[in-house]
Design a protein around this nucleic acid. Structure first.
Lengths: 356, 356
DNA sequence: TTAAAAATTGAAATCGATTTCATATTTGGT
DNA sequence: ACCAAATATGAAATCGATTTCAATTTTTAA
């Protein structure tokens, strides 16, 4: 096990002081180019690597950014993380990632751990049962920026990066109505989470604006996973008369539901037009292809991380400091699962459809 | 911004020395219970939090474990990461995650960054174009354990966690042969990566053992993504006579391929029996359901992390130190896409099929 | 009761980089 | 060529916990 090379070694090798070495390494302007070169040569020669702990201890910055997500193994969340990692890595930050498994307790524990790890900033997508966000107060108090994404704390005035869930749901519902649907079921997740609450609103508004009545019976709460697709299908089949439209707030669940409805002899979209959410891979692979809302996860990750890093870089930038909510575009992608009136032509389809 | 509470504050509050405080906090046996209690009371009262940088600087341990993956947004990789995070979190370790984007250069940069971050251990799934693994030597030299998973460096004698890719491919091919296929195409990814190279071997062995000739024309190299499914379908259609079996080394790609073949009027499995790989969600949602190999990502993450942490805990445990390769079970799940002979009964199907 | 052994506690050095404040060296203008 | 301003460099304190080695207190055994 080699002995650690320190700036003192570099200093004695080059005949300057540790102070100057430190400055040179941090690219401080007050070091002559000639001295710098000498120092960097010695750095290469001796194979010096900065000890970030000594550095952090003194400077208080860790170059670590914490991320807390409900689950790592979700295609949406992993896209977000991929976007975040890309930006963070380019800016020289490390990503420390932990998952809450949808539990407020675990989220609190993770926050505490992140706090102890002295992360420079924190990005959070809330657990479904998180009711209050006091566990992030210590960060704020200490001046560590916290940014929420996707699942945000609405009542707080902390920054959040989201899509306009209400509008997206409105557009989905409106589209179904335009296809002639008059009896539209909406399947959503835990309405404690802003994204589902907002989508429910959008669904209601669209019904209202089109003079359609909202019926409690047409709302199905579920976990929105593969298994719940079957449950939803069963519930749909038990509704008389059979609904003619279905808006499921998740593609995988919608796809599973499509399959089970098909198995029961229901034709899609002729009997029921179906719209999903997320533009998950599966939406482009099942038969019929699923109309859905494109949820730009990778981009959301990039935006949230860029915003965070900007704050860290320029703590005085009031414009960014005051940004409260960043809303990303999330467009409806129309495919066959909802097209009762006319089939898309190959041409039109390509226009709307073909982006990964 | 509050002033940081240190062990010196605790010391003066309780009237003992910082040394004793440090020992109490680390649960050192040589501190009287009464003293401990006094100290912990003061800790609670003052809201003390350990400064891990001061601690790391002296003790050399960071409680951080680095993970380098080719891409974060892959359903397999995110399942692995979820498993890793779970175990690491339970053991009090943080996860620092970065992605190589399949580039050896980026992988090297990430390794360097992990090295500078002084991670206690490193978990790596190699980039597709990584030809040599010298960039992990510094870790070994320093005594930091490095464990590979899924995509390992075969020639090195470093520990790896994998599935038996050759056997899995053998079983897939054998299954197709048993269904009566005599002309089986295999679509795989970059054969520089062990998993595809091994599967290719398994495919060849199965042909051989059944007296079928191996034909170079029946091998298709591709990126195995959604788009390449279409390319593969086109290539298949151009082969005369039409192959009667297809083994694609990835479910999403296989699913996309299924769709394009169906569009071309090919019946599955009657004309071509198809087998995928991974047991991705989509394999259970497309029509017909895809026969595939269950790839236990979450479990692989757990196993790799457990192994790493065991090494960290007991550096003298020779049994674990010498473990070279850990192989996980990966069973074939038979579904309709490959069943030419007889349809599965509902009963049999549930037996084999119903695990997430 | 007393010496030896065991159990507790503490003073001070240490980990390696950063930062403050002071000093030395250049540069530029006249 | 000379002095003020601008540039470069360095000495020493500092960040907060750990650790070594020594000292003190308590317990045990005879």
């Amino acid at each position: 096990m080699d002995k650690e090379i320190t700036i003192y070694d570099i200093a004695s090798e080059t005949g300057v002081s540790p102070t100057t070495v430190s400055r040179a390494l941090n690219n401080h302007p007050a070091v002559k180019d000639k001295t710098k070169k000498k120092i960097f040569d010695a750095v290469d020669k001796l194979g010096y690597r900065s000890n970030i702990f000594a550095s952090n201890l003194r400077s208080k910055f860790t170059n670590n950014i914490g991320v807390i997500v409900p689950r790592l193994n979700s295609s949406f969340q992993s896209a977000v993380l991929a976007g975040m990692e890309k930006i963070a890595n380019e800016a020289g930050f490390n990503l420390i990632i932990s998952q809450s498994f949808e539990s407020e307790e675990k989220e609190k524990a993770n926050a505490k751990s992140m706090y102890n790890s002295r992360v420079d900033g924190l990005l959070v997508s809330l657990a479904s049962n998180t009711k209050e966000i006091a566990h992030f107060k210590p960060f704020i108090k200490k001046g560590t920026p916290v940014i929420f994404f996707d699942r945000i704390a609405e009542d707080s005035n902390m920054t959040g990066v989201i899509i306009d869930n209400s509008r997206a749901a409105y557009n989905s519902t409106q589209h179904l109505i335009e296809q002639g649907c008059k009896n539209i079921v909406h399947a959503l997740g835990n309405p404690n989470i802003n994204i589902y609450a907002d989508r429910l609103k959008g669904y209601k508004y669209a019904l209202m604006d089109n003079g359609l009545a909202f019926k409690n019976n047409n709302i199905i709460f579920s976990d929105l996973n593969e298994a719940s697709g079957e449950e939803i299908a069963h519930k749909i089949l038990s509704i008389k008369p059979l609904p003619d439209g279905l808006f499921v707030s998740n593609d995988i669940c919608a796809a599973s539901c499509v399959n089970h409805l098909k198995k029961a002899g229901i034709r899609i979209p002729e009997d029921i037009a179906i719209v999903g959410f997320n533009n998950d891979t599966v939406s482009r692979l099942i038969e019929p292809n699923l109309t859905t809302t494109n949820y730009p996860g990778f981009e959301m990750g990039e935006v949230a991380m860029k915003n965070l890093i900007n704050r860290l870089k320029d703590r005085s930038d009031d414009v960014l400091q005051n940004t409260n909510t960043i809303t990303l575009k999330a467009d409806l992608i129309i495919r066959d699962s909802s097209l009762k009136t006319k089939k898309l032509t190959g041409h039109k389809r390509n226009l709307k459809d073909d982006k990964k």
